[in-house]
């Protein structure tokens, strides 16, 4: 399964939007946080987990999904949310804690919910998996089609929820795909120090489901494997586990000094940055020109700049609004 020209350009554009979004958030996050770094200060307070470098996972998978399909993501959700079509203005406003945010500022960057496109995430490791299994069960029971995709990190594969969810999805043959974004680090602990086997796709065998490993953070390879897994789920043939080798070009969170990284690792990762690689691929394969690129980059930047302006211009909620929406 190869992506069409349109699909490739869609993937590339989402990657551009996502990267520029994270770069913009990174700058704004630091406003008010110097000279002393205090997480509570500035227009974007709190923890901030950026997804720079992990864009291929989001676009290669979400290229096969529509708004009706369900996605659960992690504490590092922006790239997946963007690829799933979450309203960028309202997501940005949410990250700023504004009244116009997706939840009116109640959730923030780790709790992005957009019911219009069936996207949600949780800040607790592996805890998006059960809900994805449940959404898939809902589709199976309602015979209404649609699949669920749970994104998780490689650290999540050592959680009980991971193993329980894989087993439950397999025993009920549910239309769900589990996508591990293996960025090699659980905060500061290397995958090799936390995980008994080298590749988590091998764990699929324990639950009688197909497992795939995708090296090289390659959006085209991800597109191909994810496409097969999602098509399989849509055919009612059950779940699949995919592990993607990806790169975390940022720290675990903003403020992470990354002293745990071996010398030269970051430089090596930046040398493999998937965005210039994809751009070169487009130039070589579909005659993509610098002029085409400048136009698409400008469009992506315009979209993000617009969302940030929307967020900045929006009002904060009244403090007392904190008391609302506990129940419906």
């Amino acid at each position: 399964m190869k992506p069409s020209r349109e699909q490739q350009l869609w993937m590339y554009e989402q990657m551009l939007v996502s990267r520029y979004f994270e770069e913009s958030i990174e700058k704004i996050y630091m406003e008010g946080k110097s000279p002393a770094f205090n997480m509570a200060n500035g227009p974007i307070p709190g923890e901030m987990h950026l997804s720079n470098g992990q864009e291929p996972c989001a676009v290669g998978v979400c290229a096969h999904l529509d708004a009706d399909d369900v996605v659960t993501s992690t504490h590092r959700p922006h790239h997946v949310a963007i690829a799933k079509g979450v309203d960028l203005d309202r997501m940005t406003a949410e990250i700023f804690g504004k009244k116009t945010g997706l939840s009116g500022g109640r959730g923030g960057h780790m709790h992005i919910f957009d019911a219009d496109v069936n996207f949600s995430c949780s800040g607790i490791i592996a805890q998006g998996m059960g809900p994805a299994v449940g959404a898939a069960l809902s589709r199976q029971l309602q015979r209404k089609g649609g699949v669920a995709v749970a994104f998780l990190g490689e650290g999540a594969a050592n959680q009980g929820a991971f193993h329980e969810s894989l087993n439950l999805a397999a025993v009920w043959k549910l239309p769900v795909v589990f996508v591990i974004e293996d960025n090699a680090w659980g905060i500061s602990v290397a995958k090799s120090a936390s995980t008994a086997i080298e590749r988590n796709d091998q764990r699929a065998a324990a639950y009688g489901m197909p497992g795939h490993f995708i090296p090289g953070n390659d959006p085209l390879a991800i597109f191909e494997v994810a496409g097969e897994a999602i098509a399989r789920a849509r055919r009612g043939e059950g779940p699949t586990l995919i592990e993607i080798e990806t790169y975390r070009l940022a720290g675990h969170f903003m403020g992470d000094a990354e002293g745990y990284r071996p010398e030269g690792e970051k430089d090596a990762l930046f040398a493999k940055d998937p965005i210039p690689k994809f751009r070169n691929h487009l130039k070589a394969s579909i005659g993509w020109t610098d002029a085409d690129d400048a136009e698409l980059v400008a469009r992506a930047h315009g979209l993000v700049d617009g969302a940030i302006a929307f967020a900045r211009d929006s009002a904060y909620p009244e403090p007392e609004e904190a008391l609302e929406k506990v129940f419906v």
Partner: peptide, 20 residues
Amino acid sequence: TPISETAFMGAAVGAASDGM
């Protein structure tokens, strides 16, 4: 269900959020 409370409790949340 299997004896997997973490999974099926999470699944209940996901199914409920999806209209069940």
